[in-house]
Design a protein around this nucleic acid. Structure first.
Lengths: 184, 184
DNA sequence: CGTTTTTGGGACATGAATGTACGATCGCTC
DNA sequence: GAGCGATCGTACATTCATGTCCCAAAAACG
């Protein structure tokens, strides 16, 4: 987000509340109005505007926030440890645990036209390593595999919401699916 | 769509042109304005309004159109023939060939709140048959498997657009992925 | 408790998308 | 080439989201 000056703790809390509410709201309804976001955050619309002067600013903050979470998740998965498939599995597990956040990313791609999916060099390295050490399917393009991760998270989220199954079951199936896709 | 009276061939052609343009436009940009849709269809906005009085009417027609295409695709795949996995594979192949249409469906789910994913009884029957005859993974819920189809189509579409690969390669990888997911 | 910070909530201007209406024009058919 | 169906393009009213301003109330802070 790169806040220039440090904020008071009060402001920081409010800012975070708005951000989280924005994620929750915009995930469920990408064209939700700022008024709806403000309601979800339990602040006045004018307050929201004070923190994020424009919708674009809010979206930018959202993207920055998600990017940061993503990088943290990748780091936690220790991408350099073990076989390619093992690292891939750990990464998927990390992402699944925060899928409600990353779900936003999947959505936002379709809202802004300039936004193009970028391939994460770290993830690409993991997948290529897996193909070399024989644990990951060589017939599938690493770029394809990376792209395939997001929709599965999305499905897991929807499945947990829609079906009568528990969140845990959804997580298990998503993880199993992701491994089946990539495994040699 | 349920057009009450039969239309002149001219009107029919125009109506179809609008519908197809709407799909193409709204897939790429779900919040595109009706003006943009009209431009894509190469008709005046007033003409579009003559055929579909409101945005809601256009969306409804779109959904009906896609539903019909979907049913046709399912039928073409001969869901009652062969093993469960074979039928599933044929179905996926059919859907892949029209993925730019069904991609709309994936999008529209997030635009309307009331719209809930329904499970197709025919597809569910295919998947359950596959689990019984041992060709489809018993550990994965049929509902989960059905939900997993759409994101893969979506990925295939994006992959074909984004990457430098050919449409054919994208199709092959998507099909391979879908089979890997479901196979026992 | 007094001061400062932060929020609430309303008023307002603006712009974009939507929906309606209508006369002019094009193109096909008889 | 006259008639008729269909389209075009424009003008207009309306609604909604956005963004700006401002002041009073509430909360945090020393």
């Amino acid at each position: 987000m790169s806040v220039t000056a440090t904020e008071s703790s009060t402001r920081e809390r409010t800012r975070r509340a708005i951000l989280l509410a924005a994620i929750a709201t915009l995930i469920a309804k990408p064209n939700a109005s700022l008024g709806e976001v403000a309601d979800a955050a339990e602040v006045a619309r004018s307050t929201l505007h004070r923190y994020y002067p424009s919708r674009a600013a809010l979206i930018a903050a959202l993207n920055a926030f998600v990017d940061a979470e993503y990088e943290a998740a990748v780091k936690r998965s220790r991408p350099d440890t073990g076989s390619g498939l093992e690292a891939y599995e750990r990464l998927c597990a990390e992402l699944l645990d925060a899928h409600q956040i990353f779900y936003w990313w999947t959505q936002s791609v379709h809202l802004e036209e300039d936004r193009k999916p970028e391939y994460d060099p770290t993830v690409q390295a993991v997948l290529r390593r897996g193909q070399e050490d024989g644990t990951i399917d060589r017939r599938l393009d690493p770029e394809w595999l990376e792209m395939s991760i997001w929709p599965s998270l999305l499905t897991a989220y929807q499945y947990a919401v829609t079906s009568h199954r528990s969140r845990h079951e959804a997580r298990e199936m998503a993880l199993r699916t992701l491994i089946k896709i990539a495994a040699a």
